[in-house]
Design a protein around this nucleic acid. Structure first.
Length: 508
RNA sequence: GGUGCUAUCGUCUAGUGGCCUAGGACAACGGCCUCUCACGCCGUAAACCCCGGUUCGAGUCCGGGUAGCACUACCA
């Protein structure tokens, strides 16, 4: 087998869609597994859809996710590294020109002068109009006007496109690594535009084949939306005489909407309230802002794990995979053929799993800026201790606040539902008595307090639940939180007593 | 409309002719734990799209339906 080289080739037309991220991931896993090269090429042949900042966004997103680029555009080489550059298609005009000329010379392509308006009129007049073997003889092109005339018109500055001449009635077979052989008849293909007059750049089809060939790409792993045009690409390789070194193809299943029909779109994220992009994106072109997984509090390894399993699975029951395990176990023949519905709930679960794997200190580093944002300066050791008590109940670092706020600030009000259920008629009396006991207590350890309070409750027959819940409300402001002696431990005697006195005052 | 791809619990999936009275995970529901809320643990419910065929035997192979998806631009 020849040296593996895969490419991820996004268009800088906006934020990188999560489906694109998965495509990049599968390419990366395949490359790493085979000791091959992961190449990033920017497909900016549509000047009208270019969005400033999109390319930088793509690079930053891949870097955040840990998808390292070996060749092409990347963080340490914004203009590309490697021997096959430039890696931005807009910088490869001359190269494409040369290959288009080759196709014209060999009779595989021709010039066409039909304007977009003329084509629209044709489509309106003839249903299912297709520019192909049946119709090209009636159109305005170098086949009908003659090559010399065509050259003259071009020299005069007339706008033209180059079309690929497709021989009708040929069965074209594409071998797909995931789906097997796919065969279509060339008659359903139209004479695709290879070179556009609008911006003097090639279309995707031409640029893609020329670049993959020149960049020695061995495997094209891309979304299923490209499957219908794969036979066209095979025909292009043949026309260039490159069929021998043509890359292998693998078309990945699509990511579908969580509900309803169709593929996952940006709108679904807005509608259902979850990110569809890896990073938050501020679109400079239309002013829109899209939320990202990073900003939503996801760990990159959770996003990777979640995405990897949307369309791929091993034979076993394993669900948690590190990047290294994915590299070892990934294989294209275990990629699903059918589209995968995007299940955001499972994404949260993955983040929960990865959050539990972090140390309390690591999480404290992430949480302390959030606390600082609320004007709270706390000791890292104390924050880590609080996190150790509460992390198992959150999916995100950002959710820590609602689980830990009472450690950092005394309750300013008392939850009504908790009061109704847990603050009984006798509670003020119980807490008052308990306060006296606590005031006289020197051993403030969990064991010490437990040894003090439990026998007292038992002796008075007040009921553990009744007293402890009322006590909890005094400290927390509600009926929630970790074990009560863990709370008193962190609060300390002074703060605990202060909160109890305050509660007694407010609640009576 | 045309062409192609696809089809197992609500969702992601395991299953490559007998190990399938179809396994796991998320979500849902119930229980346990317990001073509360969670976590955790245990359990329940939940699927082979339909019709034929091949075969001793089909979720698994074949054919036909049906449904979903994608493509059908001087977008990628």
């Amino acid at each position: 087998m020849r040296k593996v080289c895969v490419r991820f080739a996004p268009s800088p037309t906006g934020a990188l869609h999560i489906g694109g991220v998965r495509t990049a991931l599968y390419n990366y896993l395949f490359a790493r597994q085979h000791g091959g090269t992961m190449l990033l090429r920017i497909e900016d042949t549509d000047s009208t859809r270019f969005v400033p900042g999109a390319e930088e966004y793509i690079i930053e997103a891949l870097a955040w996710l840990g998808i390292d680029i070996d060749e092409g555009i990347c963080q340490d080489a914004p203009n590309g590294k490697g021997n096959h550059g430039p890696y931005r298609q807009s910088e490869r005009r001359e190269i494409y020109h040369q290959y288009v000329d080759q196709l014209i010379a060999s009779g595989h392509a021709y010039y066409a002068f039909d304007t977009p308006e003329q084509l629209d009129a044709k489509r309106a007049a003839i249903s299912n109009f297709q520019y192909d073997a049946h119709t090209r003889t009636e159109m305005d092109n170098s086949l009908t006007c003659g090559m010399e005339e065509a050259q003259r018109r071009i020299a005069n500055g007339e706008k033209y496109v180059v079309r690929f001449l497709i021989e009708p009635n040929q069965d074209v077979t594409v071998h797909d690594l995931i789906r097997g052989d796919v065969t279509i008849n060339s008659s359903i293909l139209d004479d695709k535009v290879l070179y556009k007059s609008a911006d003097d750049l090639p279309t995707y089809h031409l640029a893609n084949i020329v670049d993959d060939h020149l960049m020695e790409v061995s495997h094209v792993i891309r979304g299923e939306e490209w499957l219908p045009s794969a036979p066209l690409h095979v025909l292009l390789y043949r026309a260039f005489g490159w069929e021998e070194t043509m890359p292998a193809f693998a078309h990945l299943p699509l990511l579908l909407k969580p509900d309803g029909n169709g593929k996952l779109s940006k709108r679904d994220g807005d509608r259902l309230g979850f990110p569809v992009f890896p990073l938050e994106f501020h679109n400079q072109k239309d002013g829109s802002v899209s939320s990202g997984y990073r900003e939503a509090g996801y760990f990159p390894e959770a996003v990777i794990n979640f995405l990897a399993l949307l369309g791929w699975h091993t034979t076993g029951d394993q669900e948690m995979f590190s990047m290294q395990e994915l590299i070892e176990q990934f294989s294209l023949d275990r990629v699903s053929k059918s589209g995968a519905r995007f299940d955001y709930e499972k994404g949260k679960w993955f983040n929960h799993q990865y959050l539990q794997m972090k140390t309390d200190e690591e999480l404290a580093d992430l949480y302390m800026p959030i606390l600082a944002g609320k004007g709270i300066q706390a000791d890292k050791a104390m924050v880590a201790k609080v996190i150790g008590l509460t992390k198992d109940r959150v999916n995100f670092v950002s959710e820590l606040w609602e689980q830990t706020n009472f450690f950092f600030e005394a309750p300013s009000e008392y939850d009504e539902k908790s009061l109704k259920k847990r603050w009984k008629e006798d509670s003020p009396k119980h807490i008052q008595e308990m306060l006296s006991l606590l005031e006289a207590q020197d051993d403030w350890s969990a064991e010490g307090l437990d040894g003090l309070i439990m026998p007292w409750i038992a002796e008075k027959e007040y009921g553990v639940g009744v007293v402890m819940n009322a006590f909890r409300i005094c400290l927390v402001g509600a009926a929630r939180g970790p074990h009560i002696w863990a709370i008193t431990d962190i609060l300390g005697k002074e703060e605990t007593l202060r909160r109890v006195r305050k509660a007694l005052e407010v609640l009576q």
